[in-house]
Amino acid sequence: MKKLVKVIDLNINLFYSEKLINFLKTFFGIDVFGMAFNGDSYISDRQKKDVIVHRKRHGAVKSFDMGESNSEHFFLIGSIFKGNADESHYNVDILTVKNLSNIKSILKKYNGKNMGIEFLVSDIKYSDNREIGKWFYNMKWIYEMCKKYNFQFILSSGANKYCELISLKVFNILLKESDIENKKYWNDLNVWLENKKRGGTFYDTN
């Protein structure tokens, strides 16, 4: 039976392999993976189109390279926000937040651009307990801000190693600890990603 709501991890910085994808699906319950690929290593398999989301760094041209045009793959442009509000993030699909200073002005500036605000769990995996507690608080705050300014809140593993990968169960615990309703979160993320895939205009139903 096809799952209606897919579990999505949009930031996995690991080398792509079929085994990894199978493992993540079977053991971790993840359905859609956001991965960065080199220009020559795009996955040409059409069946993987719904499973793999290609991530590109901001600055890379959103035109079709050789690999992309053949595979007709959907990709998202990502950028990192480190606290500098003057930096330009136009045409960015996902903004990965590393520092919360000036984030409110960024949210006001890009209001209505259908952008995703991403939090990486790998950023705090090795932090002390105080930092982890603060991170949970910040996550809730950002989630509320995203709702207010029409951004999509995204929680990703940001895994650079196998041990940093997160299962659906742990994702849901992290959301629960931040008082975010997990069903609503997954549903919203699915809708947002589908919207991005269609490339259509974002309509705020609220």
């Binding site: 705090i124 090795y126 982890i132 190693k161 196998y162 041990c163 997160i166």
Partner: peptide
């Protein structure tokens, strides 16, 4: 998950 060891 938040321990400092390479575990799965």
């Amino acid at each position: 998950y938040f321990t400092n060891y390479p575990i799965i």
